[in-house]
Nucleic acid binder design. Structure first.
Length: 608
DNA sequence: TGTTAGGGCGCG
DNA sequence: AAAGCGCGCCCTAACA
């Protein structure tokens, strides 16, 4: 592609804006309609139906790019590209450290990766829009409304200060066409940049947007790489615990035997143990006075059948959730393929769909194995949430407690007579809003010893109870109260409110308080983890540029890399350094320590 | 027959 | 009666 030759002398390209078409173009699909689709696996019929016109020739344009400078002035006109020839552009842009701006990293970068191309930085407009729309840090909090209501041209005029746009007028002043044209994408990008204020809050927000976008790159890379998974080991494990693979619709032998044992123990020969109703009735008949069949409830009861039931539940879980059917569905070519949704949780955590990627049970982790000559580097941020709370609240006492290896022991030693178990319960209880039991009883002591930390989460709880929103440290806003909250409050405030109305409203308010209380901590921890992950990625790209060490899994505060054995030591160093750097980036302070535990292993079960 | 709600449990 | 937070997935049961 003749990109470089079209750039004026002296111009400084900063962004590569990617869209499906220029205004007036047709014959290419609309990225909005493809969102959520995997370009690699989408059925041909679906893909083709999105193209207006003839058979999709191999040479057909896949989209257009526009090179922009810092002031978002286009340095080129919209240039069509096809998958076949975008490689030169990627090389050119990466050599200049440009940031790729697009609506969906999942879509565009997924495509790049299929063709073996990587990029270093991006701005994911879809993800950033979600953050900006609800962040209290956006100028006046009105980004969403502005973006919707502003007349054409205004958004461009409101772009951040910089060199004035050329006299010929900006491309983005044009009226919005339908679909993701370069003009639409450009206008959205300008609006998003303008929404970030030049304040401390804006600086934090910018970090969050960058981290979220980096996360999107990583999620796409994990999706393209897959997590090494040994079908052989998994099958052996299943046969060992369940017996041979049963015919469709049948229980495996060993599971069936446990069912028989359970029926005998409960004197219920036809019991279906998967039916909570039937099971509860059978328990009652056997003299077990339980209110539900959950393991938590049954732990308080004593009966020979309960040990059998527990064994049944464990094995049944393995069979239904991670058995042969799961293996056939989700493991291909020796890999499990996690499909992440970046920012899929309101707090900013990732969610995942398909295969339960974020719930891989300990029982099957031995099937996650490094290739020959390779290692898994498994790292997790120890006791992350209380450390995050210490940092975001600037609680000096808790910061001091964070400098040891074991935060809970340090808390125990100051205020709880050295009792680690109690210290942990009360700390977790404080972050989750527990009021009962030991957690509730010890709370006053925690509040006295760590007033800043407890004050922060108590304040978040009060805000939530009052129906107001809270925000993470970097500025991700919580969702507002739901309809049930408002309805309950209306009912409680009405003239003929009953005590029941009042207690219901109180209950819902407290529930929201627990949510907002936890939101600030869980959400800020997610931001830290995202920065950590981003720094791990950058470290690998820069220090091990052959890209054979790869991030293959991410789970809230844990990351796994698959690396050549001779790179393992360097990766371990990178992972540690990235954690320290993340803390500096987010909190601009190193008073609180955020140590990570790193294991170099051959299989996942060997980590911790 | 297909959809939805809720119990239960895996992960952090 | 109230009950520590956030998820996804499997199952049954209820309902259209």
């Amino acid at each position: 592609m003749p990109i470089p030759s079209t750039i004026p002398d002296g111009a400084a390209p900063r962004f590569v804006l990617v869209a499906t078409h220029a205004e007036g173009d047709s014959g290419v699909f609309d990225v909005h309609e493809l969102r959520g689709e995997d370009p690699r696996t989408a059925q041909p019929s679906q893909k083709e139906s999105l193209r207006e016109g003839q058979e999709p020739a191999e040479e057909s344009p896949a989209g257009v790019v526009l090179i922009l400078d810092e002031a978002l002035r286009p340095l080129t006109g919209p240039l069509s590209f096809s998958y076949e020839d975008i490689g030169d552009l990627v090389t050119w842009a990466e050599a200049r450290a440009l940031r790729w701006v697009w609506e969906s990293t999942r879509y565009w970068y997924g495509m790049f990766l299929t063709d073996g191309m990587t990029v270093e930085r991006c701005w994911d407009l879809g993800l950033c829009r979600t953050i900006l729309s609800s962040s209290p840090a956006t100028a006046g909090g009105g980004y969403a409304a502005d973006a919707r209501d502003a007349p054409a041209g205004d958004l461009d005029a409101a772009a951040p200060a910089g060199p004035e746009p050329g006299a010929q007028g900006s491309l983005f002043a044009a009226p919005a066409p339908r679909g993701a044209s370069a003009q639409t994408v450009g206008r959205e990008f300008a609006a998003q940049r303008a929404a970030v204020p030049r304040t401390t809050a804006g600086r934090k927000l910018e970090l969050l947007l960058a981290a979220e976008s980096a996360g999107a790159l990583i999620a796409a890379e994990i999706r393209a790489t897959g997590m090494p998974w040994s079908t052989r080991v998994h099958r052996a494990l299943l046969e060992d615990q369940l017996g041979p693979r049963p015919p469709e619709g049948h229980r495996p032998q060993k599971l069936e035997r446990v069912v028989e044992e359970l029926r005998a123990a409960l004197g219920a020969p036809k019991l279906n143990p998967d039916s909570p109703q039937e099971l509860l009735r059978a328990l009652h008949r056997a003299g077990i006075d339980a209110a539900s069949t959950s393991q938590w409830e049954l732990a308080d009861h004593e009966h020979p059948a309960l040990e059998v039931l527990e064994r049944y539940k464990k094995l049944s879980r393995l069979f239904t959730s991670n058995g042969w059917a799961w293996l056939a569905m989700w493991v291909r070519d020796g890999k499990f393929w996690p499909d992440y949704t970046v920012g899929g949780v309101v707090t900013g955590r990732w969610s995942a769909r398909g295969g339960g990627a974020l719930q891989i049970p300990a029982t099957v982790r031995s099937a996650v194995r490094a290739d020959p000559g390779c290692k898994l580097v498994v790292a997790d941020a120890s006791q992350l949430e209380p450390r995050i709370l210490a940092a975001m609240s600037r609680d000096e006492a808790l910061a001091i407690a964070s400098t040891g290896k074991d935060l809970y022991q340090a808390i125990a030693n100051r205020g709880f007579g050295g009792d680690r178990a109690s210290a942990k319960i009360v700390m977790l209880g404080a972050m989750y809003g527990q009021t009962s039991g030991d957690a509730g009883r010890l709370m006053p002591q925690l509040a006295k010893t760590y007033p800043q930390a407890v004050g922060l989460i108590e304040h978040a709880a009060r805000e939530g109870e009052a129906g107001r929103n809270v925000s993470t440290f970097l500025g991700r806003g919580s969702p507002g109260p739901d309809d049930a909250f408002a309805a309950a409050r209306r009912a409680a405030n009405s003239l003929d409110a009953t005590p029941a109305d009042q207690s219901r409203a109180d209950s819902i308010a407290r529930s929201r308080g627990r949510f907002t209380r936890n939101f600030v901590v869980q959400g800020t921890a997610a931001e830290w983890a995202l920065c950590w992950l981003g720094q791990v990625r950058l470290g690998i790209r820069r220090q091990l540029p052959d890209l054979s060490s790869r991030i293959v899994f991410f789970l809230h505060d844990e990351v796994m890399l698959h690396v050549p054995a001779d790179q393992a030591d360097e990766v371990v160093r990178i992972v540690h350094a990235a954690a320290a750097r993340a803390t500096e980036l987010v909190f601009r302070s190193d008073l609180v320590e955020t140590p990570v535990t790193v294991a170099v292993v051959d299989s996942y079960d060997q980590a911790k």
